[in-house]
Each structure stands twice: as structure tokens, then as C-alpha cells.
């Protein structure tokens, strides 16, 4: 990051501080869980180049999660490090969107999910670059560069699978159909978002959901796929009400750390 003097971090009242911690956990948990799912492909991808590409994206996401968790812990001020937050919170305390905790499925499911999430993340991060919190603005700028690349990579694959063979088309359409009911949650807002937007800490771009839909629709169309109809959107992740998948994911992720509480690694 640059050495020029950053604006001083704004003083936070308790309510704003609490909202900020929540918000940072949402951002962080999205990335940690999604990065974890992607890492499951390492050694099992369809081709060597993709083992490397997916690992790259996973590393970017887990790296972003680490920075965000660290900032969340510092903001909270109770001495919880990024590892404490990652490895010693139960699923009820996790704040990721439901979409990212679903099992990785086949390659089409992974790629379509990456694309849908990536476009949303891109627009959100673009706005967050203007955050009045210098640390968050900085993380957003770095993450934006990485996310641009993730969207490019996943987008190309959506085209290839949608407009490849009958089988790849069928799998891509099925992935889209299964994931669609989880996309609404990416744009749901509550008091946390309102508080932070008002304080200039988490600026929101104009019509993020609309721009997401437009970009997704464009790629889906070019991929000869059909945009699913909107139905009831699954939700609850931001409040800690998850699917059954997160518990199993965390059991695996946390087992070694939890088996040796207090140990250094």
C-alpha cells in the first residue's frame, strides 16, 4: 500500500462499531468459506492448468478473508485474532451468504457459483473503495483487482460450458437453476448496511443488484443458457442460520485447531 498519509480512521460509537464488526464478518466469511470450497478441487481438477487457476482464486479469497477477519477482530477490540475468529466460531456465529457454503458439486456448479458471486463482489468492492475507513478502502482496492480476474476466468468458463457440448450445457443450466435461489441473499440489506452506509463506512453503488443482473444476463445469454425465473430467495446466512452444509465444513476446517486449544501452529 502507498506511503502517503491516509485519512485518520473515524471515531466509532458502539452501535456503529458493532455494525462494522458484523459487516466485516459477512465479507470475510463469504471469502473464507468460498475459498475453502475451491481449495477442495486442488489435485482433482479436470486439467492441470485448472488446478493452478482454482488454487489461485482460492488463495486470493482466503487472503482477503484473513485481512478482513483481522480488521474485524481489531474493530471488535476483544483480542480475537483472525485465527480465533476462523477456527473457534460455531456455524451460528458465521455470517457468510448461504450460496458459498454449498458443496462444490461438479465443475459447472463451482464455476457458475464463482461467476455469480464474483460479479456481485465486484460491484460491492468497487463502492467500498470509497469507504471512510482507510483499512477497509485499502482491502477493497486490492480485492477488486483480484475479483476482476476471478470474474474474467469464471465468465470465460460459463461461456465454454454453456456453449460447449450438450452435456456441458445441461450441467451449466442445472447449476444455474440450483444456485439462482441463493442469489437474492447477496443483495439483501438490513440495519447493519443502513448504519454503515449512513456513516460512509460501507458505501453502496447505485443499483448494485440491477447492474449484477445485467452483467450476469449478458454472459448467460451469450452462453446460450436461460436465466432462471426469480422465486423465493433463500436467506439466513447473514443472521447465522445456515444450511446443514456449513456445520460439516467447519467440523473439518476446525478439527485440528480445536483439538489443541491454545496451541501455536
Amino acid at each position: 500500500m502507498s506511503e502517503t498519509a491516509l485519512p485518520a480512521a473515524p471515531a466509532l460509537d458502539d452501535a456503529t462499531r458493532a455494525a462494522l464488526v458484523e459487516y466485516l464478518l459477512r465479507l470475510a466469511d463469504d471469502r473464507l468459506v468460498l475459498g475453502h470450497r475451491l481449495s477442495e478441487w486442488c489435485g482433482h481438477a479436470p486439467i492441470l492448468e485448472e488446478d493452478i487457476a482454482l488454487a489461485n482464486i482460492a488463495l486470493d479469497l482466503i487472503g482477503q478473508a484473513t485481512l478482513l477477519l483481522r480488521l474485524a477482530g481489531e474493530t471488535e477490540g476483544k483480542g480475537r485474532s483472525e485465527d480465533a475468529l476462523a477456527y473457534f466460531r460455531d456455524s451460528a456465529a458465521y455470517r457468510n451468504a448461504l450460496m458459498v457454503e454449498l458443496p462444490r458439486g461438479d465443475f459447472a456448479f463451482t464455476i457458475v457459483r464463482q461467476f455469480l458471486f464474483g460479479v456481485a463482489a465486484f460491484h460491492q468492492l468497487e463502492a467500498l473503495q470509497q469507504s471512510a475507513l482507510p483499512d477497509l478502502a485499502g482491502i477493497a482496492a486490492k480485492a477488486l483487482k483480484e475479483t476482476r480476474y476471478h470474474v474474467r476466468h469464471a465468465g470465460e468458463w460459463v461461456l465454454k460450458l454453456g456453449d460447449g457440448t450438450e452435456e456441458s450445457h445441461r450441467r451449466a443450466q442445472q447449476a444455474l437453476d440450483e444456485l439462482w435461489r441463493y442469489t437474492g441473499e447477496l443483495f439483501m440489506t438490513d440495519d447493519v448496511d443502513a448504519t454503515l452506509a449512513a456513516a460512509g463506512l460501507a458505501p453502496v453503488g447505485r443499483d448494485a443488484a440491477g447492474r449484477w443482473r445485467s452483467q450476469v444476463s449478458d454472459v448467460v445469454g451469450r452462453a446460450t443458457l436461460a436465466l432462471p425465473a426469480d422465486g423465493y430467495m433463500q436467506r439466513g446466512g447473514r443472521q447465522g442460520r445456515h444450511t446443514e452444509h456449513l456445520g460439516r465444513l467447519l467440523a473439518e476446517m476446525q478439527i485440528v485447531a480445536r483439538s489443541h486449544p491454545g496451541a501455536q501452529w
Binding site: 492448468e49 493452478i52 489461485n56 470465460e156
Partner: peptide
Amino acid sequence: SVHAVDAEAALQNARDVYAR
């Protein structure tokens, strides 16, 4: 070298393999 089906993929793969 890298394996790829088109130029865009080759560029991405090259970046991931040789320039990360």
C-alpha cells in the same frame, strides 16, 4: 508452455503458471 483452447485462456493460464 501451457495448454489452452484459445488465446484468452492461454493468457490466463500463462499468468497463473508463469507470473503469479
